[in-house]
Write a protein that binds this DNA or RNA. Structure first.
Lengths: 267, 267
DNA sequence: CGCAACCCTCCCCCTGCGGGAGGGTGCACA
DNA sequence: TGTGCACCCTCCCGCAGGGGGAGGGTTGCG
């Protein structure tokens, strides 16, 4: 039987942290003296404490750590851990993208994004839509696109997507993926035929991988504001050239279109 | 002039977040209406907002972001940013170490660390000591070791270190590095000659890189507790074989010694 | 003028940890 | 059998950086 202080020393955790883990139901002391409330730990609990410690170093939330600890089956447990490692990899990718954006933003001189105003007509599309979290967009997109591919035989243009603004500002929002079509397709699975309404779009083209697409977004936003326009509705991305067209990422072309209207008020 | 909502839409930040950045002095609105308190932004502020956003994605604290934004000189600014990128790399290394430890901990079966009790005599050493933060230990160690190398001509054994427990449980503690010597060396810089007191040590040897050294620590702690011993004083590491001896990390050998004493009380 | 959409401030909540106050326990030593 | 001290307890507050929501003022279109 070890006192909390001794156990802290063995596990390189602080006494406070051990108490918190007890409170959170992560690491129950082997014995709690009913009269004094003193916590006593067993040496056999050291590995458990270390697993918690390592998971915390990986920023796994306490609730998820508890879930992992409660999972007895080694295979199921490994699955849970792998999910978190996957999350770490995603985060790493996002970090690298942020670094790339940052470099481009801090590079002196304007980014020099060409913007044009364009009136686009209504277009019949096959679409898949949903409300998703910002972090899940990529995975969702892949699934939705695969579903579209399976249903739609003939397209009359490059695929695109609509991204509700709440996706960015609230971390969750309405998203849809579409391909333009000449005639309606039958509703299969999540695929629907609908009309993408016409609009006046402020359009910019982003070249290369999406790592630094925010810079293009920013320039587009600046242009829109500078031309006394206001944004009306979700942003439209059109994938003129993407991974399905060429493996050379530098050749990719993404068109960003922001529906705008002229502000009637002040100049 | 953009309202906060419009500006939020352009920058993909939430209205709340923009207000917080204003409050924190990171992004002052171009104009604040004195009567209504409404914030109005200029399109030219979009790139600034994006820089903030990207730095935040890299977990740069708001205070440091402000520092970076206030730095006009591009070179000085680049230095500040690079410092944070360095921090990210360190964190990545720690993450990888944690993943390695975790895998080893979750592998079924005991880790099988051999522990022995050993009485070590007092030893004259040349030492460098300081109080440092846990995250700085590696860098500090390299500097201290270099200083020892420069001063001490002849050693009579492998180098070692003492690590105060507070280093782990409080994130900051007393640390010292030493090499055993036959005769005192003159005090130069931070180097001092002193006697490392004799002690009864519970000793385990960790093989390979330090990524998974916590597992060995845990096993050692378990052994100590199982043998009704208690820890008395800072842990001692001895670098039997290290990077200065062989470039093959798998061959490295680190001896971990925990000063212990027999518990007189209950069994 | 009415009304909806927007904006304001203020307060509380979340996560995971640390500091410190105020008070009870355990145990060696005299 | 004290006595002293290190240890332990609970409870409250702080930090970062953000979200939710209440309650109330502004803006601007129809």
């Amino acid at each position: 039987m070890l006192t909390i202080g001794e156990f802290a020393q063995m596990t390189h955790l602080s006494v406070r942290t051990l108490r918190r883990y007890h409170e959170a139901g992560l690491l129950e002391p082997a014995r709690v003296d009913p009269s004094s409330g003193y916590r006593y730990y067993d040496a056999a609990q050291i590995p458990t404490a270390q697993v918690i410690s390592k998971l915390r170093e990986l920023d796994v939330p306490l609730a998820d750590v508890r879930q992992i600890l409660l999972t007895q089956d080694p295979a199921a447990r490994a699955t849970l851990v792998t999910e978190h490692l996957q999350r770490l990899e995603d985060q790493l990718a996002r970090t690298q993208a942020a670094v790339a954006s940052l470099h481009r933003l801090l590079r002196p001189g304007p980014a020099g994004v060409a913007v044009e105003l364009r009136q686009v007509p209504a277009q019949l599309v096959a679409t898949v839509e949903d409300t998703v979290a910002h972090t899940d967009v990529l995975a969702w997109y892949a699934g939705a696109m695969a579903e579209l591919d399976a249903v739609v035989r003939e397209t009359v243009g490059p695929p695109g997507g609509l991204y509700d603004n709440a996706l960015f500002t609230r971390g969750r929002g309405h998203v849809s993926v579409h391909v333009p079509i000449a005639a309606p397709v039958p509703a299969v699975g999540r695929v629907r035929s609908t009309e993408l309404p016409g609009a006046e779009l402020a359009v910019a083209v982003h070249a290369g991988v999406h790592d630094t697409i925010d810079v293009t977004y920013g320039e587009l936003g600046r242009w829109v504001a500078d031309h006394t326009l206001a944004v009306a509705g979700p942003v439209r991305e059109t994938y003129l050239l993407g991974p399905r067209d060429t493996p050379v990422a530098a050749h990719w072309r993404t068109e960003i279109g922001w529906p705008v209207f002229r502000v009637t008020g002040a100049g």
